[in-house]
Design a protein around this nucleic acid. Sequence first.
DNA 1: CATTGTGAAGCGTTTCACAGCC
DNA 2: GGCTGTGAAACGCTTCACAATG
Lengths: 241, 241
Amino acid sequence: MSTSRPRRRIPEASVARLPIYLQILIEQADGGVLNISSEGLAELAGVNAAKVRKDLSYLGSYGVRGVGYEVDYLIFQIRREMGLDQDWPVVIVGGGNLGQALAGYGGFSGRGFPVGAIVDNDPAKVDTVVGGVRIRHLDELDTIVSGTGIAIGVIATPASAAQEVADRLVAAGITSILNFAPTIVTAPSRVSVRTVDLAVELQILSYHEQRRANLRSGTRTGGRGTGLGPGSATLKRGATA
Amino acid sequence: MSTSRPRRRIPEASVARLPIYLQILIEQADGGVLNISSEGLAELAGVNAAKVRKDLSYLGSYGVRGVGYEVDYLIFQIRREMGLDQDWPVVIVGGGNLGQALAGYGGFSGRGFPVGAIVDNDPAKVDTVVGGVRIRHLDELDTIVSGTGIAIGVIATPASAAQEVADRLVAAGITSILNFAPTIVTAPSRVSVRTVDLAVELQILSYHEQRRANLRSGTRTGGRGTGLGPGSATLKRGATA
DNA sequence: CATTGTGAAGCGTTTCACAGCC
DNA sequence: GGCTGTGAAACGCTTCACAATG
């Protein structure tokens, strides 16, 4: 019974929004809402209604003209299309601050990504328990991956270790990587890599913040003029922890 | 003379990449590299060289034909344009797992975003110390913001509290919000909001993971795990053809 | 007749390709 | 000669607008 098949390729921009719709739809379903229009969903998601319709159209024609979409059915379809009708256990590499937070944070397990394993190369961390999972040694990665079929690795190490860790994850058979280290990691094209750099997000905000400040004061900030010398740019060199 | 500001608006897509170039340039400078070509920078950033040149051109004409870009000078210019020639202290709302990790994570303070304050509404958490900062009560937000001039708020609460927290941040005078709660938060247009939903990132990976699995086998693998994930959707409705 | 699904226009981003300059 | 800076082409995403339809 091949349940599969609207196998068209969904544009990346839409793929990034479907989880957001899903989240909203689940909330609505919990609240007892049975149907929703593209307009209503758009409002809740903070986007344009036409965009919602186009996004949903990539899943198939699951709406009813004049009525809207059946919430439960849409949830089912998005889950199926996104591969969220199964759990995807992850292995977290790095038992430091961030790794511990990720392991303890219910947001992973609660949404279908249970923490299957945590590894670290620091013997002092090995065998401590975080979020109910015992930290194992990085060298056990191969065993863990082949033994559990885990497909997704999360890098929560310092930037300096990230590429090596990525290489080891790939060698162990991981096919998707979520990288929280503030550095680019590369992998063979068969492996998906996404990098989330928390400081980059703040830096983007900083740009807008600064731009508003400049607009308010009308003129350019007198501050540092022609200064060729990074006299002040010598500030903190990122001691990426 | 007159190094007046290149007051043009930088496209968002470029704004999002400049911090990445900056990171790389700082590493290069630390390694003693004095000059870099768009080609070299592109390689390190994992993007196309023309893109690098176009991105940098929004800052002004800071390259030298036939030679490349002076690393230190470029660092200085990107910092200036992004508003990173000053620190932007942040206030973290939520002293739970994620809030603690963010506070302890050197990646914020180390890159110009020191944690100026942490607040929580749980009396049990108030006065505990995280990452060297004492948690204060949420109600002190106004005092904190007006007293310190903090402009950026980080939401690290459960989804259910996020919108209310956002409202309070805005009321307190915050003008940029980085939201880690898995929900949309809205704010007046004068306030910048960015949402980082860690589970969404994993869900995007899931899509690609699942897509690869389907391509390999043609039909859906039974896989491990639960048939239907968490949540309440029980309704399935017939085949999907 | 409210609302979907979708061609087509509009717009921002990426990439090409080469003139301009050191 | 080598590399930047940038018009122009190509691309992908968003939005419009409306015919299709339960």
